[in-house]
């Protein structure tokens, strides 16, 4: 996984709450057996609407998504994260994420920045007035920065310390766990023999 320290880019305001992972990528797009190629399925049902925010030319090339509360609820499909990344997004900002989505984002290297909904509202207003304004998501300082002058946004965001550390270092979770394999073996040595196995019952 690549290291993530800070990112600055154009941002798209997605003024919707409860964007579940079926909206991010419908099930019919989940048949691929690779980790790539899901960008076309991103928000598939909404992309046919010319007024949809990602279809607006002023938001071309957006790399930060600013979404309403409860983004990424529902299905556990990590394809939702891959589709956002394939499209070009590096960070999503929202006041509440589905737990599994947020976990998946952290594993796949997409920054899910949790903020107060007021910050989302201010970003939406700013981006609707000036779509080209760059938004910075600084993971080292846990800050979101955008705009200048009186309307300038400089707010902190939440992310758990461990995920932040892994993203900053670009570390793969499995490698970390395998470095503690002796502890896994120790656990297995005293694990209850009553627990079932999937070995076909005789």
């Amino acid at each position: 996984m690549e290291k993530f320290t800070a990112h600055t880019g154009k941002a798209a305001p997605l003024r919707r709450a409860n964007v579940d992972t079926d909206q991010i990528i419908p099930a019919v797009y989940l048949k691929r057996v690779t980790r790539t190629g899901f960008g076309d399925g991103l928000f598939a049902a909404w992309r046919s609407d010319p007024e949809f925010v990602l279809n607006r030319p002023e938001h071309d090339g957006a790399t930060v998504l600013v979404a309403g509360p409860d983004f990424g609820t529902g299905s556990s499909r990590e394809h939702a994260v891959w589709a956002l990344q394939d499209y070009g997004f590096q960070a999503v900002i929202s006041s509440r994420f589905g737990d599994i989505f947020r976990g998946n984002a952290g594993k796949a290297g997409l920054l899910a920045a949790l903020v107060d909904h007021k910050v989302v509202e201010r970003l939406w207003s700013l981006l609707e007035q000036d779509p080209a304004t760059p938004v910075t998501v600084d993971l080292e300082q846990r800050l979101i920065l955008a705009g200048t002058g009186e309307d300038a946004i400089r707010d902190s965001f939440d992310i758990d310390d461990y995920t932040r550390w892994r993203l900053l270092e670009g570390l793969d979770d499995i490698g970390i766990t395998l470095s503690h394999v002796d502890e896994v073996e120790a656990y297995e040595a005293h694990r209850s023999p009553l627990r079932p196995t999937t070995v076909p019952a005789g």
Binding site: H79, G103, D173
Partner: peptide, 19 residues
């Protein structure tokens, strides 16, 4: 429920880091 990166983690280690 878990995502695919976690599926791989469980396959490889039979464990999961969880808050």
């Amino acid at each position: 429920g878990i995502g695919t990166s976690e599926v791989e983690h469980v396959l490889a280690t039979q464990t999961l880091p969880q808050v």
